[in-house]
Amino acid sequence: MMDCERNRFQKFINFRLSHRFMPIGIAVVLLSITAMFVRAFALDGDTLWLKHILQKTMLVGLLIMSLSKDKEEDEMTISLRAQSYAIAFVIGVIYALVMPYVEFGVSNVVNSEGQAFKDLGDFQVLLFMLMIQLLFYHNLKRYR
């Protein structure tokens, strides 16, 4: 019973997508970014719903890229990926804690009235963490 649960948990932890998903993830991210530009500059009317959908698809694309295996996946790339997730988590938490104060400070220095203090949205934090993870993973691989 315990072994069965442990095996299932281990399978869940080791879950990765095939390396063929990497181009799919890149395509989803690029399409989302293109659609964001089209929405911002070419579409009129209330398209806030579209913005939210595109933000979600962009996160899904980055997650697919993050979960895709390498062509040559071995224990070293698994270890580098784990390191990159740890770094992204720590930097993401620091970013979420510090960035609202930076935005508040900068906006009050630039404008005399400035913006009211507000926390970061989930999209901004998740986007930052996923980008940091991918960036660190590819850099760690480059300098291995």
């Binding site: 040559e72 071995d74 224990e75 070293m76 790339t77 691989k141 291995r144």
Partner: peptide, 10 residues
């Protein structure tokens, strides 16, 4: 041994 060349190098 089923790893990449870069792993052997490292």
């Amino acid at each position: 041994i089923g790893v990449s060349r870069q792993t052997i190098n490292s």
